[in-house]
Structures are given as structure tokens and as C-alpha cells.
Amino acid sequence: MVKETERLFIRVLEAGDVKPLKRIWGDEEVMGLCAGATAHEKLPKIVEYYVKCHDEKGLSVYAVVEKASGIVIGTAGFNVENTIEKVELIYHFAKQSWGKGLAYEAVSACVEVAKANNVVKCLYASADPTNLSSLRILEKLGFKYIGMKWFDDTNQEEPYYELDVR
């Protein structure tokens, strides 16, 4: 267990999460404002990658589990590249979980995880300019708007935000 909130468990991904991840990363509507849906056959390798990332770097993208149902309803956490001093915050949720404040609750918990890690200095995030819900989450969490930035994976300019967590 990485973190617990009132309604959620945030935990390291597991091989058994591949099936629920099809409803998240494999769903074109969910991922339509990102780089698009991930092919289902790639999901096991992605899960392995994020488990290894957590083991080696202490941060990763995590499963978000609804306490009441025990179901994986989303993912939230950190894309770690070369360093964990500055990491990308990401989050994706199944359609059935939209509009319930669960993304904010999970992402807020992830920000707490980053703050508790003594190496992370800055989080950054972006979202499709039309994804007003995600942009509001970032602003509510205190992320500062830096400006528009080009992203090759989505092939567009997106609002780019940073949060100092030192």
C-alpha cells in the first residue's frame, strides 16, 4: 500500500490489474484526450515496467482502488524518467468514476507521496486544453500554470503546470 484516503487505496500495480486497465488505458474515450488508447496486448509489459519503476526508484504510476467495491477504478502517480527530482504527475480514470471527486482525491494523495519523498523537488503535469476537469484538479492542488508547451505524444500544445514540493 502506497497511500490510503477516505474512499481509496493507492497501491503498486499488479499483474492481475491488466483486465481492469483495459477499461482505463485501453479505452479510447478515456484516453482520447491523451495519446490514445493502449493496445490491450501491451498492458502486461506496462504493468511490469511500473512495478520495476517503483522497486528501483520508489515512485511510479499506481493502481487506484475504490475501497467500497475493491475495484481498480483508475491510475495515478508519476512517470519517472532520468531523475526523481522532477517527475510528471499523471492520472486516468474509468468512465464510471468520472465526476465523483475520486481523481482529485487520488491525485491529492499522490502529491502527498511526492512531498514525503525527500528527493522530489518538482512535479509537472499537462492536460488537453479541452479537459477542463483535469485542469481544475491541477489548479486546485496548487499547480502553477507555466504556459503552453508542445507534446510529441499527443501532437499538440497543452497547458503545462508545475508544483514545487520541497
Rank of each mutant, 00 (worst) to 15 (best):
residue 15 A to N: 10
residue 22 K to H: 03
residue 24 I to R: 01
residue 25 W to H: 10
residue 26 G to Y: 00
residue 27 D to S: 12
residue 27 D to C: 12
residue 28 E to D: 15
residue 28 E to N: 12
residue 30 V to T: 11
residue 31 M to F: 01
residue 31 M to T: 04
residue 32 G to R: 00
residue 33 L to V: 02
residue 34 C to V: 09
residue 34 C to W: 02
residue 36 G to K: 04
residue 37 A to T: 10
residue 38 T to S: 11
residue 39 A to W: 00
residue 39 A to H: 07
residue 41 E to W: 05
residue 41 E to C: 12
residue 42 K to V: 09
residue 43 L to N: 03
residue 43 L to Q: 03
residue 45 K to M: 14
residue 47 V to S: 10
residue 48 E to Y: 00
residue 49 Y to F: 14
residue 49 Y to G: 13
residue 49 Y to I: 07
residue 54 H to I: 08
residue 54 H to V: 08
residue 55 D to Q: 15
residue 56 E to Y: 02
residue 56 E to H: 06
residue 56 E to N: 14
residue 57 K to A: 15
residue 57 K to M: 15
residue 58 G to T: 05
residue 58 G to A: 07
residue 60 S to C: 02
residue 64 V to D: 11
residue 66 E to S: 08
residue 66 E to A: 10
residue 66 E to W: 00
residue 67 K to S: 10
residue 68 A to C: 09
residue 68 A to N: 09
residue 68 A to K: 13
residue 68 A to H: 03
residue 69 S to D: 11
residue 69 S to I: 07
residue 73 I to H: 07
residue 73 I to Q: 07
residue 74 G to C: 08
residue 74 G to R: 05
residue 75 T to F: 00
residue 77 G to S: 03
residue 81 E to G: 06
residue 81 E to I: 08
residue 85 E to Q: 14
residue 86 K to H: 10
residue 88 E to T: 05
residue 89 L to T: 08
residue 92 H to G: 04
residue 93 F to S: 11
residue 93 F to G: 10
residue 93 F to Q: 07
residue 94 A to M: 03
residue 95 K to W: 00
residue 97 S to G: 07
residue 98 W to K: 04
residue 99 G to D: 15
residue 99 G to C: 13
residue 101 G to A: 03
residue 102 L to F: 08
residue 103 A to N: 03
residue 104 Y to I: 08
residue 104 Y to A: 06
